[in-house]
Amino acid sequence: MSIPKFIVITGHYGSGKTNVSVNIALDLAKKGENVTVVDLDIVNPYFRTADFEQLFKNNNVELFKPVYANSNLDIPALDFDLMSLRDTKGKVVIDVGGDDEGAKALGRFQKVLSGNSTVLYVVNKYRYLTSAPEEALTLMREIEYASGLKCTGIINNSNLGDETDAKCVENSLRYADTLSKLSGLPIAATCCKEEYADRVPMPFTVKVFVKKPWEE
């Protein structure tokens, strides 16, 4: 399957969009792609893709971030245009803010993105308000409405932070499956650790980059 130019990562607050985005970007870079990551989060004050500037630099990944990201200012301003990225070489991974509020930022880039992107909806069964497939579907529709884009696939990133184990991921498979049937969208990937990658469908082995300061 060929990957479109823009890979848009959306989902509920705290579903793990940032960690998924970082993993996808590094994975593509490892495969020799030119990769640009865009931190399009206008909602979250901390724990965002812009935190990984050095990691990206070390892996030849370009980073676009809002001018006030990680500053002391609480201004949701985007001082760049995705149009300028349309003709660059390689792939662009866009980490969007949570929920429909965060997805609003995508609206203005709709023209650049439609027909040129895959929009992945990240879900975590263990998050409140999306722990039932029906709730996750409702939120997906809200995100689609706010962004003017249609989701094209589901990433099952069900996890319990540092308490995540194989059982935790296995217990989320039926949830992801039901959401897939309800929405008619394929499961693009199930995020997991290498040890139990053989026990899940469409495994995508991820590392945990989003850490607390005492875990580093």
Partner: peptide
């Protein structure tokens, strides 16, 4: 009940 992954702020509110 089953554990949930929550932001500190959300957990304060639910509690």
């Amino acid at each position: 009940a089953e554990k949930k992954l929550m932001k500190g702020n959300e957990a304060l509110a639910e509690a």
